[in-house]
């Protein structure tokens, strides 16, 4: 039996009928055509499918599409605005924080969450923030640099949602 699922993804409203077993990542890729979110494993280790679900980083391969009913999602396609790369995307480019690019959307979304929660992370905070993301090309060195650069260019501009998130949880 299929279920109706209404989501707001990157600011746009979508309505679909889906089978319960459809993974959220497949919903994004197949039904919404948002193929920037990748799949790198089947046991929730690699983090390539990381997206923001109401601002929280989650692995979209570990949720069914039906669970996203009424939620607001941000994927990699929603990061650039007005033809400008998001500062995190720009920093990944500037610092050579990617090679094959396959894990990159997941890292950028994990970084977006990390910086929203903690606008001035230490190197250790950044490493910890990527516990759930695997990269096989870069050795992580330039990914960490990219987040440091992004933190500087963003200048704490995204600090506000973090505070709100912290309050919400307290």
């Amino acid at each position: 039996m299929s279920h109706k699922v209404v989501t707001t993804v990157n600011g746009r409203r979508y309505e679909h009928e889906v089978e319960p077993r459809l993974l959220l990542v497949h919903h994004l890729r197949d039904n919404l055509g948002l193929t920037g979110t990748h799949i790198g494993c089947d046991t929730t280790q690699c983090g390539a499918c990381t997206i923001l679900l109401d601002g929280q980083a989650v692995k979209s391969c570990n949720l069914f599409a039906v669970q996203a009913e009424g939620r607001s999602l941000t994927t990699i396609e929603g990061m650039a605005k007005d033809g400008q790369l998001h500062p995190i995307q720009q920093a990944f480019w500037d610092e050579h924080g990617l090679q094959c690019g396959y894990c990159t959307p997941g890292f950028i979304m994990a970084a977006a969450y990390l910086l929203a929660e903690n606008p001035n992370p230490t190197e250790d905070d950044i490493r910890r923030g990527f516990e759930g993301n695997l990269c096989r090309c870069t050795g992580y060195v330039n990914i960490i640099k990219a987040v440091q650069t992004a933190a500087r260019t963003m200048g704490g501009a995204e600090a506000k949602p973090a505070t709100q998130a912290a309050e919400r949880r307290a």
Binding site: R29, D30, G33, L34, T35, G36, T37, H38, I39, T75, I76, E77, M79, A80, L85, Q89, Q90, F92, W93, D94, H96, L98, G101, Y102, T104, P105, I108
Partner: peptide, 21 residues
């Protein structure tokens, strides 16, 4: 020099085989 393949890849516009539908 910055890699020219990157703007696509950082913005979710890469074209891997599974992206062809």
């Amino acid at each position: 020099i910055h890699r020219r393949e990157d703007p696509r890849l950082v913005s979710g516009r890469g074209r891997y085989v599974d992206d062809m539908q």
